[in-house]
């Protein structure tokens, strides 16, 4: 029996070197400081952190490298950096600054060989491919719900890969894409349900289960976390290795420790610290 701990991963959005989304903790003086927050979550028993650089403009790109260096100095758990990594040079800068993994999304769709190059140079343990997926119907849109249901039964609903931060559909099937990125050298998947993101009514269990069955690399599920019970459902009903969440932690609704205690009490193997 393989018993790696199921991981709980807070995700931080960084814009021009500052964490965005309202965050207020008693132990943090500067709520926008990535280092303060990284320390907070590391002390709260987070297993790993994900930093997503949402900076739109190119000229602030170098800021993220500085953020990564400061975070690496401050914490003693692994962390992944994603957002805006388009080339080997981008990835190298982030990894040499102390990140453990880089996550690629749009760049991987546009240039899948980037995944293989990253694996060859840095090792597959450094390569996370982020997949943003949304429930779609194969042809035609504006279907009524009944229609959709019938189509779904006939298997015509699929999970479509979106790029550019969930703005542009690609026509690609997320499960197929997951298989492909694994064969190209991805070491891990960060799977986000666009439908569920921000809803707080639970992870997309069907999407996650399908992707987990299709690949033999770890899957981090993202989108929809509203409480510990959603993480429990995720780990009970899918093969997910990790649960990512943002707002439930950032707004102080739950601590990572709360979530882990709940999971442990319900028989999920988690790292308690």
């Amino acid at each position: 029996m393989i018993l790696l701990a199921k991981r709980i991963i807070p995700c931080l959005d960084v814009d021009k070197g500052r964490v965005v989304k309202g965050i207020h903790f008693k132990d943090i003086r500067d709520a926008g400081d990535p280092v303060e927050l990284a320390k907070h979550y590391s002390n709260d028993c987070a297993d790993e952190l994900v930093f997503l650089d949402i900076t739109a403009s190119e000229e602030h790109r170098a800021t993220m490298v500085e953020v990564v260096k400061s975070v690496a100095r401050a914490i003693d758990i692994p962390f992944t950096v994603g957002g805006g990594i388009r080339s080997m040079d981008d990835a190298r800068a982030i990894l040499l600054a102390g990140a453990d993994k880089v996550s690629v999304n749009t760049a991987a769709v546009k240039n899948p060989s980037l995944i293989t190059e990253l694996k060859d140079v840095f090792g597959k343990q450094c390569v996370v491919v982020a997949i943003d997926a949304k429930r779609s119907i194969r042809d035609g849109d504006g279907e009524r719900e009944m229609e959709s249901k019938r189509k779904r039964e006939r298997g015509e609903i699929f999970y479509e890969v979106y790029i550019y931060g969930g703005k542009r559909p690609t026509g690609m099937d997320a499960v197929e894409w997951a298989r492909r990125v694994e064969s190209l050298g991805a070491g891990e998947l960060l799977l986000t349900s666009i439908d569920k993101d921000g809803t707080k009514d639970g992870y997309d269990l069907e999407l996650t289960a399908q992707v987990c069955k299709a690949v033999n690399i770890p899957v981090i599920a993202s989108g929809g976390a509203g409480g510990p019970e959603h993480m429990l459902a995720l780990f009970r009903e899918t093969g997910a290795d990790a649960a990512l969440a943002a707002s439930i932690f950032h707004y102080g609704e739950y601590t990572v420790r709360d979530v882990k205690r709940y999971l442990k009490d319900n028989g999920v193997e988690v790292r308690i610290c």
Partner: peptide, 11 residues
């Protein structure tokens, strides 16, 4: 028989 690399928290 196991996922390689072994990556994550173990006892």
């Amino acid at each position: 028989s196991v996922k390689i690399p072994h990556m994550g928290w173990n006892r």
